[in-house]
């Protein structure tokens, strides 16, 4: 397993209008690891995550200073569309497009100009296999995707992202609306996906962070101030032997 740094975040501040929500964020995500971003609701986990593939700038007017480097290169220097293909994103509410299972996966490659049926078939099979869905769904590829269960929908969203062969996949509270068994499946999946990608998750579920991640970034804000990094380090250390008292209080559920 390589230990090169894939994503490097340094001195990042993010503002909504004139309001600073995240300040001085530093951390690195080594290739083939899972990094969990934890912290209380509203601490900017999603905002930070979304800034990694620049989907923030599409929906709300956020402004960022500091560096976010993907393979050593500032992400603002990438074409945003290419960046989003390389840095995929899974949302809390499984976003299944109102079409067939097949089309849900093929939509990405189609956007980038893959037209040949044989190529698309191959990508769809590969991606569904990658998302542990192929066995379940291979006989109903052309059925509508809305009928899938919540967990299947979320894995379908993962397959759709995999179809673009991303280097990083961001999971934004991706299991928050799923039952424990579906959650378990997604966590197993993340673990397998580590072999080919690098994963960053935002979660308010501390048990998930403890179970699934290699490194943990704990964000928190003081009353009326922007969120800062409280602690960043190997998950094991953060959860067993935190250096900062606030971390300990938070992970043991005594506040936040």
């Amino acid at each position: 397993m390589k230990t090169t740094t894939l994503l490097e975040v340094s001195k990042v501040n993010i503002h909504y209008g004139t309001n600073c929500v995240l300040e001085d964020i530093d951390f690195i995500a080594p290739a083939h690891t899972i990094t969990a971003i934890i912290g209380p609701s509203g601490c900017g986990k999603s905002t930070l995550l979304r800034s990694f593939n620049r989907t923030n700038e599409l929906i709300t007017k956020t402004r960022r200073t500091g560096d976010i480097l993907l393979e050593g290169r500032e992400i603002n220097d990438y074409d945003p569309l290419d960046l989003r293909a390389r840095v995929g994103m899974i949302f809390q509410k499984p976003a299944v497009l109102p079409t067939t299972i097949y089309e849900n996966v093929a939509v990405g490659p189609r956007l980038y100009g893959t037209r040949k049926k044989s190529e698309l078939d191959e990508i769809v099979e590969e991606s569904l296999t990658g998302a542990s869905l192929w066995k379940e769904l291979k006989d109903r590829l052309h059925k509508r995707a809305e009928q899938l269960s919540g967990g299947q929908k979320q894995r379908l969203a993962i397959a759709r992202t995999l179809a673009l062969k991303p280097e990083i996949i961001l999971f934004d509270e991706a299991t928050a609306s799923l039952d424990p068994i579906s959650t378990q499946k997604i966590e197993d999946l993340m673990h397998r996906l580590k072999e080919t990608t690098t994963i960053i998750i935002a979660t308010h579920n501390m048990k998930q962070a403890a179970r699934a991640s290699d490194n943990t970034l704990f964000l928190m804000a003081e009353e009326g101030e922007p969120s800062r990094v409280v602690e960043f380090g190997p998950t094991e250390l953060i959860f067993t032997n935190p250096k900062v008292e606030k971390t300990e209080l938070y992970i043991t559920g005594r506040f936040g």
Binding site: T55, R84, F91, L97, V107, R110, L164
Partner: peptide, 25 residues
Amino acid sequence: PDAYREASLALGATKEQTIFRVVLP
């Protein structure tokens, strides 16, 4: 739902692609 637009944009679709391939259908 905005989730569809987000999903499409997060795949790297342009706004035009999102409108014609996701929102309009």
